[in-house]
């Protein structure tokens, strides 16, 4: 049986003046899966999502949603998708319920259907208590939930979430993660963007890393982390003399060294056995290492490994002028 693709993009390009915000993106997302587009600010995540969601017109390349072309069959595409952006797309001066009912009516539901749908969604997203309050009084987490709920009014089969948890407190983030995981239960496809490797790791079946408008790597979370040696053992050494000696002795095994803080980092799989062995090997007398820390790979590490430089929007600014 052929694999069915909810989203396929090939060579997508979007240019603003001289700057290529999206510079030839290729993607394939399987129906019913969660896909994460991972990258720092300015990498082209939002532009990619807006292209796929038909809110921007590509300057090159093609893409299809459930087999429908995003340019030629815009209407068909829009019927199947919803986009929840970084900024809440709701009326502050309407209540949560009014917003949802309005969107239901605009999507073609009757008044009764729209009311029923709004009630269902408010219950599901734990917003019943706030249903009759203006959105202006909602917390950040509540707004995101209502925003996501309003994207579901029209029962889309593909849901785009642009940085769904940026700016949320840890508890709201956990709630959002649970909601996103629940979504996929019934064959819905989720395409999300994020700056957090942890988030992509927790949620996504597959991850693509985007940098300067290019997809620089893709695979499962495990595959990506293998490329960056998942974890690192950071050792703070007792003095400069020891530091120099150990740096010389370990040579290329050192993946990180910080003279100022007397710190070195080496690869590890994170297991107790291996860490004990490494410590014994590096510091047989027990006097050279003052502290140790097992560091889990972050987006920065993935980035460093894939592109040879750290994340940061200043790099993107530079390329804009090239």
């Amino acid at each position: 049986m052929n694999q069915s693709w909810a989203i396929e993009a090939s060579g997508l390009v979007k240019t603003y003046g001289e700057h290529k915000a999206v510079a030839g993106v290729d993607l394939r997302v399987a129906t019913g899966s969660i896909f994460a587009l991972l990258g720092p600010n300015g990498a082209g995540k939002t532009t990619t999502v807006r292209l796929l969601a038909t809110l921007l017109r590509p300057d090159g390349g093609t893409a299809s949603i459930d087999g429908f072309d995003i340019v030629r069959e815009q209407r068909e595409v829009r019927r199947r998708i919803s986009l929840t952006g970084q900024y809440v797309a709701l009326d502050e001066l309407q209540t949560g319920e009014e917003n949802l009912r309005m969107i239901g009516r605009l999507g073609g539901l009757s008044g009764v259907q729209a009311k029923r749908r709004a009630t269902e969604l408010l219950e599901r997203f734990d917003l019943v208590g706030a249903a009759k309050r203006n959105v202006a009084t909602y917390s950040g987490g509540m707004r995101r939930r209502l925003d996501l709920a309003s994207g579901l009014v029209g029962q889309p089969s593909i849901i785009f979430l642009d940085e769904p948890t940026t700016g949320l407190d840890p508890r709201s983030r956990q709630t959002m993660w649970r909601i996103i995981t629940d979504l996929v239960g019934s064959g819905v496809t989720v395409f999300l963007t994020t700056q957090y490797l942890e988030e992509a790791d927790r949620l996504a079946d597959r991850i693509a890393v985007i940098d300067r408008g290019h997809v620089v790597a893709d695979g499962t979370a495990a595959e990506l982390k293998r490329q960056v040696a998942g974890q690192r053992l950071d050792l703070t050494l007792s003095d400069a003399l020891t530091f120099d000696e150990i740096v010389r002795r370990l040579g290329s095994r050192i993946v990180l060294s910080d003279t100022e803080r007397l710190m070195i980092g080496i690869e590890t799989d994170g297991s107790a056995t291996q860490i004990r062995r490494l410590l014994d090997e590096i510091d047989p007398t027990g006097e050279a290492v003052r502290r140790f820390d097992v560091h889990t790979a972050t987006l920065d590490d993935v980035f460093l490994a894939l592109t040879g430089r750290a994340t940061g929007s200043q790099h993107v600014q530079e390329t804009a002028n090239v």
Partner: peptide, 24 residues
């Protein structure tokens, strides 16, 4: 989530062809 499955059957009842006047 069974609720999602239930709401998905709703899709078939909706026409989703609101006229511009209805939208207005």
């Amino acid at each position: 989530m069974s609720e999602i499955a239930a709401t998905h059957t709703l899709t078939t009842e909706t026409t989703r062809s609101t006229s511009s006047i209805g939208q207005a």
